[in-house]
């Protein structure tokens, strides 16, 4: 395995670590690189060089670009194993979640667009109707996933994707696990209002 050398970028080091610590609520400075987190991470074999300890290191060094776009940020399944085992209680899942949001705010192309589409669509549905209605949610999610291809007149992957989902839907239907009802929450405006308010407040800062 080739080990890449992390780059120290003094101009961004302070701002990056401060922002991540503040937003994730994790004290990254207490990390002493014992790598207990790396030993238990279930996706470690798929994230290559980047394990939780190394993500923390990248952030500390101010390596903005690599810290925002690396396999761990997009493959972390938020299982909280690293966080409960870390002798310093650092929850890397909260850090990867923060990096996802930072990437979006900085308009960076994510390594896994589907992950962004999934969580974004889920929350939009949840806020719009008050509850996530599985059929509507899955439809919108697939629309988002296939949109870039449709836009390029690239229909083959679109058809493949739709076929896979149709097979799943058919099997779900057979087991009576597909639900056609649509649920609406009367008080959904309360959350929408709160969200609007907080967004306004953030803009002022």
């Amino acid at each position: 395995m080739t080990v890449s050398v992390n780059e120290f970028i003094p101009e961004t080091a302070n701002t990056l670590i401060e922002e991540v610590m503040e937003r994730s609520g994790q004290n990254l400075l207490s990390c002493y690189q014992c790598r207990r987190c790396a030993a238990g991470c279930p996706v470690a074999e798929e994230t290559g060089y980047v394990t939780p300890d190394r993500l923390i290191r990248m952030i500390m060094l101010g390596d903005y670009e690599n810290a925002l776009n690396n396999p761990l940020v997009w493959k972390c399944v938020s299982c909280y194993t690293c966080g409960t085992r870390c002798p310093n209680g650092i929850h890397t899942a909260r850090i990867t979640e923060t990096m996802k949001k930072l990437a979006k705010e900085n308009h960076l192309q994510p390594e896994r667009l589907k992950v962004v589409n999934f969580h974004g669509t889920f929350i939009n549905s949840g806020i719009r109707w008050g509850r996530v209605n599985e059929m509507e949610f899955m439809g919108l999610y697939e629309l988002k996933n296939t949109f870039p291809d449709i836009n390029q007149f690239n229909f083959k992957p679109v058809i493949e994707e739709l076929k896979t989902q149709a097979r799943l839907a058919k099997a779900m239907l057979k087991k009576k696990r597909l639900h056609f009802g649509f649920e609406l929450v009367k008080g959904r405006r309360e959350i929408k209002k709160l969200y609007k308010k907080i967004k306004k407040l953030r803009k002022k800062l």
């Binding site: 949001k101 889920f122 929350i123 949840g126 509850r131 929450v185 008080g187 709160l194 907080i198």
Partner: peptide, 20 residues
Amino acid sequence: DWNCCGATSAGKVDDFLAVA
């Protein structure tokens, strides 16, 4: 009249929503 809790997605989209 309960609403969706935000599940595992809210924390990845907006930390305020994850609580609200």
